[in-house]
Write a protein that binds this DNA or RNA. Sequence first.
DNA 1: AAATAAAATTGATTTAGATCAATGGCATTT
DNA 2: AAATGCCATTGATCTAAATCAATTTTATTT
Lengths: 193, 193
Amino acid sequence: MYEQLAKSIGEKVALTAAEFDLCKTFFIPKKIRKKQTLLLEGDVCTYNAFIEKGILRSYTTDAKGNEHIIQFAFEGWWITDLSSFLMGENSTYTIEAIEDSELLLLTAAAREELMNALPVFERYQRLLLENAYIALQARVNSALTATAEEKYTKLTIAYPDIVARVPQHMIASYLGLTPETLSRVRKQITLRK
Amino acid sequence: MYEQLAKSIGEKVALTAAEFDLCKTFFIPKKIRKKQTLLLEGDVCTYNAFIEKGILRSYTTDAKGNEHIIQFAFEGWWITDLSSFLMGENSTYTIEAIEDSELLLLTAAAREELMNALPVFERYQRLLLENAYIALQARVNSALTATAEEKYTKLTIAYPDIVARVPQHMIASYLGLTPETLSRVRKQITLRK
DNA sequence: AAATAAAATTGATTTAGATCAATGGCATTT
DNA sequence: AAATGCCATTGATCTAAATCAATTTTATTT
């Protein structure tokens, strides 16, 4: 149940077996079924979730009821509404499982304690944030610069997992396109080959 | 010369006067004039820059030669190409002063040393990253969700400084709009009042 | 396996914002 | 203070992607 977490931490910092055993005690394991929500818009996001197995997504809903996907998260990634999680504000996001998933949950208090108990865990969190920030900035750049087709092509290169495992209409939402436009873009690409 | 830095760190963590004196020694002060660059596209970004005074921007240039502004940074903020700074890759960004500015530069090596010498500095960096990540995610959401007018209105509310101090065509670039569209959006808003 | 619902595709039409083009208004520079 | 170049505005036209609508395909549920 903690394999992915051990791997993720191990890729960033060094942790002894005893330290990792301590680390584990701060997490709450949770299974969640497809289409179930971990966080509902309007609620306070009480957990930072690490994904051992499965896929989740976070999304906002606009005035017309359209969903806009903010993030996908796979095995070995984290997902939360950071703003709500840290500041205790009501969330504007919903977090939902795309597949049956296994999570390791960390409350804000547990996270603080864990960072104090194991300073390398704070370093691990910082390194994760750095990568997440870089990835998000690339996404902003793509949103400012790219055409519909370029956005999709970049995604297939940067995140083939997303394209392989996530329904197409969700990919469209993530890219800021309608499902119809993404369908046509894909057709254009295959016709050209 | 270090007032803004003291303030920024002090808002996030506690640091004694002696610790702050030590902290200062890791930075390289630098003045930069309007339109001068701190980083040129294609070079490695060797500094993380803290802004004591002035405004900088980072931007990419697309195939047609259009600039797309990734970030503005004012007094008390940081700017760098994090990807290039951390990984040593050639940057796709240019970082340029919008006004005559005073900077405090941190190399990647100095940053590592400083975090090891003063663990609270690592905490400070993490807290900054958390805020930056939240702000960037809000920007992604706005890019996915909002019309031209909504994007501009949100910006005036969230960052009145940007609207007050940055030329309009740069604001357009930051929002992913043409200068013409932003001009028309602004006209609509004033006509309606 | 049939029934139902959800997702993807395809076509026709619309539209928000881009592009092209010209003019007037500010700032720097000399 | 004149001159030069950049910036913002306004108008006319174009276009990429959205919207509306219908059909086919693929998943779920019973």
